[in-house]
Amino acid sequence: MSTPAIDVGWGAVVQRVTPRLNGLWVLLGLIAVMALLPCIASPYALMLMLPFIGYGITLLGFNLLFGTTGLLSFGHALFLGVGAYTAAALTSKFGILSFELLLITAALASGLISLVIGALCVRYTRIFFGMLTLAFGMLFHSFLFKFYSVTGGDQGMRVLRPLLLGMEWRGGKTAFLTGPFYYYTLLLFALLGLAMWRITQSPFGLHLRAIRENANKAAYVGVQIFRMRLAAFVISAIYGGIGGTILAVTTGLADPELAYWTHSGNLVFMAVLGGSGTFAGPAIGALVFVLLQDFVMSVTQYWRFVMGAVLVLLVVFMPQGLSGTIEALVRRNGGR
């Protein structure tokens, strides 16, 4: 009597004895490591983590649109701009310093604006969607740039230090940013990560994936394409607005360059770098982008060339991005 062949490869063993690593765990692991950073990292390294948190949150939303729904926006920096200018207007013009209020208002403003823009954009797909979002992004940039009396034009608007949970934190700005603000935004990152994980794993997320794979088939089985795409667009914009608020508080300034198309290009770069096919990929891309840019800018004045070369190499040799490539390697080594 012959015994059936049993897969005793390393991958199978690992799979049986450990829960499968998924995007959420990777993201939460990254956030847990970041929570320990203040014990060992310099203030400057912590300061670098703040843009990462801002971009990371933005990219969680961006990837709902790009990775999950299959819509590539070239104007997503618009919502970073909305978040940043909301924070600037509330703190500088209206004296509202509550960070919670800034976040809520930024989320609402981004949501409302995206509802209007999205209603027009999500009717289209592929290059047409990309061009429309680019056009709206540039329209918003022109508004910020031209309406001096409202937005400060090229000089932007100052963002004052906010209150966290109604509390004023004494000490220098660096101490504030690398202390309470760091932990506050890190917690926000974790919560928004959990929320996004829930969204992507819900029936709504399944609808979005179905739309990405084949919109016609999805429509045939009853998925409401327009509504679903619009909802994804609005959610991604809200994440963008929150990310923009964090970036603006960190730099202390909202300026039109935040909404410029090159900034939208950076978001696409980060998503591609990390890998849009995985949940945590874009956030990893944001981290690598921030660190890489900081390093390359310090080493050479031709840093744009280096960043461009990295993008080319990435697209040619690692189209799945860093996380996609690592995942593929793990699978291959695991014999799967």
Partner: peptide, 28 residues
């Protein structure tokens, strides 16, 4: 741009620990 330049300024202050900073051309 303003955002990245502010980050470079902080790098000079916090990491490079310079004694003074000179430069800047753009008003924005």
């Amino acid at each position: 741009n303003p955002k990245d330049t502010i980050e470079r300024l902080r790098k000079l202050i916090l990491q490079e620990k310079v004694d003074a900073i000179h430069g800047l051309i753009s008003t924005g």
